[in-house]
Design a binder for these strands. Sequence first.
DNA 1: GTGGTCTAGACCACT
DNA 2: GTGGTCTAGACCACC
Lengths: 139, 139, 139, 139
Amino acid sequence: MALQFQIATGNNVPIYRQIADQIRRAISMGDLVPGDQLPTVRALAEQLIVNPNTVAKVYTMLAQEGVVEGYVGRGLFVAARRQLLSEEERERRLAVALDAFFNEVLFLDFSAEQIMELLSQKFKALESTPASSTPKDVK
Amino acid sequence: MALQFQIATGNNVPIYRQIADQIRRAISMGDLVPGDQLPTVRALAEQLIVNPNTVAKVYTMLAQEGVVEGYVGRGLFVAARRQLLSEEERERRLAVALDAFFNEVLFLDFSAEQIMELLSQKFKALESTPASSTPKDVK
Amino acid sequence: MALQFQIATGNNVPIYRQIADQIRRAISMGDLVPGDQLPTVRALAEQLIVNPNTVAKVYTMLAQEGVVEGYVGRGLFVAARRQLLSEEERERRLAVALDAFFNEVLFLDFSAEQIMELLSQKFKALESTPASSTPKDVK
Amino acid sequence: MALQFQIATGNNVPIYRQIADQIRRAISMGDLVPGDQLPTVRALAEQLIVNPNTVAKVYTMLAQEGVVEGYVGRGLFVAARRQLLSEEERERRLAVALDAFFNEVLFLDFSAEQIMELLSQKFKALESTPASSTPKDVK
DNA sequence: GTGGTCTAGACCACT
DNA sequence: GTGGTCTAGACCACC
């Protein structure tokens, strides 16, 4: 099964961030497991109809973050999972994200019940496709 | 009780957005009720040590959103709450916000239970300080 | 065919509003269809001999309204049409516009027949150049 | 029957303009006929809960326009009706008003039928309260 | 004094 | 080169 990424228009999220997020997400969800090879810069750029520079930037970023490892001449591979952020940093970022989300919900005037239900569904959908099962042999 | 806004530098959130978010939040939480007067452009600019234009931009934005009403020569006041957006638009924006939040949570590798619990607490905190209590009469 | 905008000085309508109105109108009339690219901030500023900031303000406004979508580094494009406002808000704004128009007509002492005829002509002119014909594909 | 003016909050029409418009309208509709006396500055200011300066400004404006005549010590009276604007000016202002109205309607996406119907109703309501019948003796 | 508009010029992230 | 953000300072209509 080939990976299917999509770049959305209309929201103001920069393209490079959309791609990076989707790769990270695919890894979190187990669609990509450590050792999996990612598409080449050119291939992904063509598939998404995006400037190759943009894809290259994404790969560089992910490599710096450590979620991905590249070997010249062989390609780019999903790295073994490890916790990159400090506990403090994780909590700080969660608090920021939660605050932003909460504010938007309040502004849009949805009820607590609706939100909790929707979020709960999202998590359930995630469980039904269990992540990081049967990792392929790495490197 | 004077309102206390704070702007943080270093994160990528633009100043005008930080201010706007804090005002919106103060309104959502009931710290600011319809009819309340906001600080003048110049006063807030001095307090936060930002350019008056930046504050003016915030006020213009909030006025366009309808959460606030400004009268040249009189000042800026919290407007009566009303739903400006179409159902369709609200759902679209909720979906975007939910997706962004969900992605961040996944990336940070928090558990569903933790998230649901935190969010639930936020909603409860909101209920215990009901908004729109004792609204001052709007002129 | 290049777009031709004009700004008039002397009347009380602010420049940024004149530009925004003309863009909105070009879209309504079908001169600009979804996917079309608008002139760059700097280009339009030069053409109209106004400050780039003023044009930027216009573009920001239109983007917030949803009639236009901007991508840093790529440009500004006419967005697909969608209804942003709630039914209630639409009716409120129509009532305001209708009242203002009616008042002006009364003051100018034109007859009902003249007004109805002129307005009718405007609507007919619109139908004969149907908007959203051959929309270019949106990227 | 005492005149009932109202100043609206929320729209950005300046107060002085709202008052002036309503007086002009009352004259156009025949609620005020030539020779009628207007309330004193103080009385109107109190009634509308507005700064007396604002009312004074309105009266000065209307006197300059010639729709009203003031005599020190006696009060302010509705002047005899006469056409103040040149034909050219009337048509120019009508065109502007019509354009603004038309644009707003397009933006709000109402149908031609709805608009024509609403406007027609407004005119009919006007006819049923015939204007400028039995003018009282002037001065 | 109040908010609203405009100019001038700078810096930034993104493509 | 693109749009987005911010500063600095000016002028205006309104109350």
